[in-house]
Design a protein around this nucleic acid. Structure first.
Lengths: 252, 252
DNA sequence: ACACCTAGTGTCCCACAGACACAGTTCCTC
DNA sequence: GAGGAACTGTGTCTGTGGGACACTAGGTGT
């Protein structure tokens, strides 16, 4: 089953050169600079990444081993190293493909706020389909052009607001960070743990009522809330904050 | 060197029972419920966690292997499993110890905003000393009592603001998330990569000026900025947003 | 003195990332 | 058309990691 090779998960993802200190040949996400000498490649970078993405989506990031991905393509693990210099690079390519083409916000009416709102929602949707993205995009790494394209779109939406360049970038960072947090923070806060994890922490909190009185009060008062409560709340707060800054700028 | 055992990194961290489905004996972060039968333990949970924390602080989280930690304590790797059920549990104990005692904000004058500001700064400081914490506190997991105590402190600061219980929790989540992001997002955004990583991405962005015009403009206008620019910006925006909500509530 | 519990050890297994040499392909050049 | 040259996928090997399990040595109750 699923023994198909390659897999055209994606047609053209631009010029993504992976780790250039290792591979001089023009490596792109598909056909590009094919050397004309040896046997034809049985795989494509996009196909490999696609298989890896499928594994990650279905079984989690930890299930993504070179072995596993290779098996899904009916190849040996070492074959993958012809396309990818390391597992880290595989993750990079996976990310670049999974984030998809950056959105076009010019069609969104209503000024920067509506545009950013839309941008954040789209990003959130994309990341929801690939829950492993937050974990992979953590720490020092290279960003691919599509990923950069997402940032570009958001920064562009803030042009003409009177914010400085640094402020525009910080604002986008802030918003993107919120998406990341609400996508990856399951269980990080006690109430989310309360909702989905063992009742252990809830026990701890409730048993030590005198130790966490404010928390107990808040939890009891909150009751059942929708899953995306933190998302909408934070989004509104952040945009309100930015709006206030924008207003103060145009008030000069 | 550093062959000292135990290590009293921490005196009393409360009742942290790790994974209770596995260990019935009263395991605390130090002396507690010592059985009186066999040979004296050569180690303590706190000592082990302390050694692991030291490794993580100095060489990064990836350097924390059972072998490595055991070696630092002059013990076999398997000896650690007498104190810890799994590596995940070791991480949990490390975190619980590393976050430290939650702050007391009652001494902070100036209302909830100043309190939260202080809270966030303290959290940030703590996390700065242990840069691995964001990575470890990601995903589903249990929160220890001290960690919960941090949340408690922040939620308590919001009492009397007119916010609902859910809003109080969401606000704290939002703030904590911001700390997490500005602590772990190095290289996640193109300009931070620009600053500290290879010039590769900067090249990409600049070479494709026509592809990322808004980004180029923002970067050029921003120039050199302090490292914590994103931090202070986001903090101010978030607090402004919360303040607006608080105001609207008291205006009812 | 003996039994019983307990702590650290030694040995084993499996999964994983990656190095490296090799064999089979395909085209370019003489 | 015959050899390379260049290249792709394979087989094999090493090192490192987490963890299971049986065992030995140490200490305390009866």
């Amino acid at each position: 089953m699923d023994g198909r090779r390659g897999g055209r998960e994606d047609g053209d993802a631009g010029t993504w050169n992976g780790d250039p200190r290792r591979r001089g040949r023009g490596v792109a996400l598909g056909h590009r600079g094919q050397p004309t000498r040896g046997p034809r490649p049985a795989l494509t970078l996009a196909g490999i990444a696609g298989a890896a993405i499928r594994v990650a989506d279905e079984e989690g990031l930890d299930a993504v081993s070179m072995q596993r991905v290779a098996a899904a393509l009916d190849v040996t693990k070492m074959a993958l190293y012809r396309y990818v210099a390391s597992k880290a690079e595989l993750f990079a390519v996976m990310t670049e493909i999974a984030v998809g083409e950056p959105p076009v916000l010019s069609g969104v009416r209503g000024g920067w706020r509506r545009k950013l709102e839309r941008w954040a929602e789209l990003l959130r949707t994309t990341w929801r389909e690939h829950p492993w993205i937050p974990a992979v995009t953590l720490g020092d790494r290279l960003m691919g052009p599509r990923e950069t394209g997402w940032t570009e779109a958001a920064v562009a939406a803030l042009e003409g607001t009177g914010l400085t360049g640094a402020e525009r970038m910080d604002a986008v960072s802030l918003l993107g960070g919120h998406v990341r947090n609400t996508r990856s923070a399951a269980g990080t806060q006690p109430w989310t743990a309360d909702r989905r994890l063992s009742p252990l922490l809830a026990d701890l909190v409730r048993r030590d009522k005198e130790r966490f009185p404010a928390l107990v009060a808040a939890i009891d008062e909150a009751g059942r809330r929708p899953d995306d409560s933190g998302w909408t709340f934070g989004l509104a707060r952040i945009l309100d904050g930015i709006e206030q800054l924008v207003a103060s700028r145009s008030g000069d």
